[in-house]
């Protein structure tokens, strides 16, 4: 059932030319240089240390690596990270979405 609805949503998005993050509840990452990073649509913090921040997301995890990371602000939908950001990796779990 989930698979069908997801397929339907993706099809609608391509047909109607809608941005995928709106329809599919995917995380949206905005990074300003290596200084600031905003992640919208996350599903909670999995791990946090000054060197890495792992965020849960639909169908996987996202890892932000860097140095002296500070979560400036955290909400139910949004995380705003500051510090020396060195990398952003996506770790899809199991099947990739879609």
């Amino acid at each position: 059932m989930m698979r069908v609805s997801r397929k339907l949503r993706k099809w609608t998005a391509t047909i109607l030319d809608l941005p995928q993050d709106v329809v599919l509840d995917l995380p949206r990452v905005t990074m300003i240089g290596g200084l600031q990073l905003t992640v919208e649509n996350h599903r909670g913090v999995v791990h946090f240390s000054p060197d890495s921040l792992r965020l849960a997301m639909d169908g996987g995890e996202m890892e932000v690596t860097g140095r002296d990371l500070v979560i400036r602000n955290i909400g139910a939908e949004e995380v705003f990270v500051e510090g020396q950001i060195l990398g952003v990796q996506l770790h899809p779990k199991g099947r990739p979405p879609g």
Binding site: H47, F48, I71, A76
Partner: peptide, 26 residues
């Protein structure tokens, strides 16, 4: 700390400037 952060966000408690002190405390 991770569980605590998730619980706080779930209860819509706003925390800011979340960082680790040199001795490893949140």
């Amino acid at each position: 700390p991770e569980k605590f952060l998730n619980a706080a966000t779930a209860h819509k408690i706003t925390l800011w400037n979340i960082a680790f002190s040199p001795e490893g405390r949140l």
